[in-house]
Nucleic acid binder design. Structure first.
Lengths: 325, 325
DNA sequence: TGAGGCTGAGAAAACCTTTTCTCTAGGACG
DNA sequence: CGTCCTAGAGAAAAGGTTTTCTCAGCCTCA
């Protein structure tokens, strides 16, 4: 123990924590010795007394990691500088296991819990209200009086549709996922509000196959073909683009396409690469980290839903503002 | 405290931990009261005295989560029953941040560290040897005297090639990633050893685009076309299958294709869905959890590299044993 | 010169368990 | 009847910090 190098245990503690009263000379000396000796205070003992473990729990049912991983990266990024580590628990929609994980976190006296998921309109399979520790809901549904962070899907959808309009599209359709998803409805609403022409929305599932099928329906019926397609996510967009290419329809010259999610692995590998909406999940994670930190330090945080803006990632499937012909 | 309900603090502790001596009647009574009161022992205080925190750290530089997530799920699955939680730290190849994270884990006195990554032939950017806690390397390179867990890529590749042979292929080529990857070389070696015909290996990058290009090279040169293609990963396989389809080559009737990784999002969405090799990363994670637990409990674990078998996931791009024509 | 205030630093309690040691009472045995 | 052993249970220490008290010495001001 660094106390051997000059002063008492209590003085050393105060010196290192910048608390207590002592001469500047003593303080410096202790710090120097601590550094030389490589002294690392025991976080357990510290936590025992301060009631802070410098640990937060991240609970998610997004086993695939599509959404949680960027969120996690953001949280970690924000917190590591404050000496706070993150427990990640994947709970796969099993209430029992979820309970076990939450209890484990509580036992380890986490300073807070961030709940995350894969849908904005579904709660995690475990009730986190009334816990002794603060909770932030990030990209999952929380209780009305909770602190919730989500992407602004309407604004994101507007971005997408405007990009198509700016690219000169006159007849834009929307191919999306199941209507049961709230974000599907929000994106569709924003599409209807932003699009000049008559709205046309196709609901299906979140798969490439549905993208193919939707294009087939559109191209095999009589009447006008669209010249712009706003897709509910990147997988659908990939199916759409692939199908168009195979039909000899050029993207983006004949039909421009915009996706949603900016799932690199899909968006960047599509031919041509997808222009798509990014929900900025990493930023959302950072914000969640900031909030949970504030709450764990006792600062008051206003409850309610915070919507974080999406941004548009322009690749080649819709080039945005084209020079007028 | 549950001690209020009958006995002294020490007796209560012993009752709940099944240690010490006391009448069965007392033990049961204490347990019952603890349950009713919802007593949760403080893990920090316990850790302080037992030197076990029931916490292990998972370090990874696979920010994308492609490999780490299944590993993590396996670890968690194995450990949750033992009351052990997992810290996940993503370190993105930055030695400095990695150091910070490792130190944070050490401060929190984790019982062990599992190092994971995205390449079997690269070490994490931080030296974990000589730490006071046990370390297991799972799907990343460890030091020679370390405990390392990896997939058996050669065996996996043999599985793939045999599947093609069983499907009746006579001329099988191998399209893979950069030769600098050890697993690429291992898979290629196994391909050469298992394939009956003259081996032909194409090295490129890990992308769909390379799959397209490789097929173009093969089909645009003179000479025999292959009737079976073993791809180094699913992305390449997808590029290959897409390109074949667009050329009017039927998969699997004219050419059978097998991928590697079983990356659902790619393999299942390909038309037709990919037959591919699964590295069983979840199982690998479970094994890593089992090992780190044993080591943290002081049990001796033999060092060295353990290769875990891959398995073949049969979808439609190669149907395996076909009835002879 | 004496009282009061301030400065610098150590002593000790507190955090919550686990674990070892001690103590008492009762039973067995000589 | 006395001694020894054992079962059952409590007392107390330990674990490594933080934090509140306490204390001694010195300075200032009357």
């Amino acid at each position: 123990m660094a106390a051997l190098a000059g002063v008492s245990i209590s003085t050393a503690s105060k010196a290192l924590n910048g608390s207590g009263r002592m001469s500047e000379e003593t303080r410096e000396r202790v710090k120097k010795v601590a550094l030389e000796v490589g002294f690392r205070p025991n976080a357990l003992a510290r936590g025992l007394i301060t009631k802070r473990s410098f640990t937060i729990g991240l609970l998610t049912n997004d086993t695939y990691g599509r959404f949680t991983l960027p969120v996690m990266a953001g949280i970690s990024e924000e917190l590591v500088g404050h000496g706070v580590s993150v427990f990640l628990c994947a709970i796969e929609d099993d209430p029992e296991r979820a309970r076990v994980h939450v209890d484990a976190m509580l036992d380890k006296s986490v300073d807070g819990i961030i709940a995350s998921g894969k849908r904005l309109d579904r709660q995690l399979p475990v009730d986190l209200s009334g816990l002794a520790v603060p909770v932030v809901y990030a990209f999952t549904k929380g209780p009305v009086d909770g602190v919730t962070l989500r992407s602004d899907d309407e604004q994101g959808a507007r971005l997408a549709v405007r990009c198509l309009i700016d690219a000169g599209c006159r007849r834009i359709v929307h191919i999306s996922g199941p209507k049961t998803f709230q974000s599907v409805r929000e994106r569709a609403d924003a599409y209807r509000a932003t699009n000049d022409g008559p709205p046309e929305v196709f609901h299906g599932v979140w798969s490439e196959a549905w993208g193919h099928e939707a294009v087939a329906q559109l191209w095999e019926r009589s009447g006008d073909k669209p010249d712009g397609i706003f897709c509910g996510n990147d997988q659908i967009a990939r199916g759409v683009v692939d199908d168009l290419r195979e039909r000899g329809v050029r993207v983006p010259e004949d039909v421009a396409v915009v996706g949603f999610d900016n799932w690199e692995i899909v968006a960047a590998q599509t031919r041509p690469p997808l222009t798509t909406v990014d929900m900025n999940l990493r930023t959302l994670g950072r914000e969640a980290g900031r909030l949970i930190l504030a709450m764990s330090e006792g600062r008051e945080v206003q409850s309610g839903i915070r919507k974080l803006p999406c941004s548009l990632v322009v690749r080649q499937s819709c080039r945005g503002l084209e020079p007028p012909v």
